[in-house]
Every structure is written in structure tokens, then in C-alpha cells.
């Protein structure tokens, strides 16, 4: 089967029921996507599938056939950080870092989506991504800072 991963067309010939997370990590060596629970509760495995965030531990790769997958690796690189990644660095949004890739993928998608951007909506939007280290405040600070920098200020006041 064919799927697009981070802009590149990829072939996959293995078991179609293999979880998307395992295909990404094992077959494509994209280990930025993490597994925290394997049951759709923690969000560490969050990736973007055709524009929507999904838990890649719950999805058989067959469901991604012909679709476009984006993982943390496509958001930015050390030399060219995504504004969300930069904000996480500056505001203490990452501690142990295991939740961070999934958190940033979720946060970056939320920042792009329409709707009011404030503390309460941010906390609701990230409720599917567990973090045991930060207590969330610095994550919310990071996400709102990045959202505002992108000209989201107007939205934030709505």
C-alpha cells in the first residue's frame, strides 16, 4: 500500500493490521512518535492524519492507505524550529519530554484551527494529551504564547 508520510510517498508491504505507530517507528524509523499507553488514553502517539489529529496506537496502518500522515518530525528541526516548538522551549512546556511530541502536534493543530484561544479552551483542547511532569500550566503558557505570536491575539480576545 501507499501512504504519504511527512510529505514523502511511502510504500508499505507488511501486515495491514499493524498499528500505525509501529509502522512509523519500526518500518519508517520515525521514533519521534511515542507510546505511553497503547490504548488511546495518553496522546503521546498523536499524529496528523489527513489534517486531523489521531492516536496512532489505535489505527491499523490500512486506515492510512492513500492518506497523508504528519509526525512531529515534519514540524521543525533543531535549525528551524516550529513556533510551537520554540514556545515549548522558552516557557518550560517540556520536562521529561516523552509527552512533548504528541503535545506539540496537538497544540500546533489546535492553534491553526478556528475558535477562541484562551486558557480554558486550550486546556479543553489538550485534555487528550497526558503529561505527568508539568502540571500543564507551562504547556498552556507555551501554547498560548505561540498562538498569540502567530497573530492569534485577536482570536484570543474573542
Amino acid at each position: 500500500m501507499k501512504l504519504t508520510v511527512n510529505g514523502k510517498s511511502r510504500d508499505y508491504a507488511g501486515n495491514p493490521f499493524k498499528r500505525l505507530i509501529d509502522v512509523l517507528r519500526e518500518d519508517f524509523a520515525l521514533t519521534g512518535t511515542k507510546e505511553g499507553c497503547g490504548e488511546g488514553e495518553c496522546g503521546a502517539c498523536t499524529v496528523v492524519l489527513d489534517g486531523r489529529t489521531v492516536n496512532s496506537c489505535l489505527i491499523p496502518v490500512a486506515q492510512a492507505e492513500g492518506k497523508e500522515v504528519r509526525t512531529i518530525e515534519s514540524f521543525g528541526t533543531p535549525g528551524k524550529l516550529h513556533p510551537m516548538q520554540k514556545a515549548f522551549l522558552e516557557h518550560g512546556g517540556a520536562q521529561c519530554g516523552i509527552c512533548t511530541p504528541g503535545m506539540i502536534v496537538s497544540a500546533a493543530c489546535w492553534a491553526e484551527a478556528p475558535g477562541p484561544k484562551n486558557d480554558a479552551t486550550c486546556r479543553q483542547a489538550l485534555a487528550g494529551n497526558l503529561c505527568r511532569c508539568t502540571g500543564y500550566q507551562h504547556i498552556v503558557d507555551s501554547v498560548l504564547a505561540a498562538t498569540k505570536k502567530k497573530g492569534g491575539k485577536k482570536r484570543a480576545r474573542r
Binding site: 521514533t31 519521534g32 512518535t33 509526525t71 512531529i72 518530525e73 514540524f75 521543525g76 528541526t77 533543531p78 524550529l81 516548538q85 520554540k86 515549548f88 522551549l89 522558552e90 518550560g92 512546556g93 517540556a94 519530554g97 512533548t100 511530541p101 506539540i104
Partner: peptide, 14 residues
């Protein structure tokens, strides 16, 4: 800035 932070936010920390 956190020492190993850049790798962590980029999904490169191992």
C-alpha cells in the same frame, strides 16, 4: 533554555 530541550521538542531525544 533546557539543555536537551531542542531534541525533546523535535522528537529527536532517544
Amino acid at each position: 533554555i533546557r539543555r536537551e530541550g531542542t531534541e525533546k521538542v523535535c522528537g529527536l531525544a532517544r
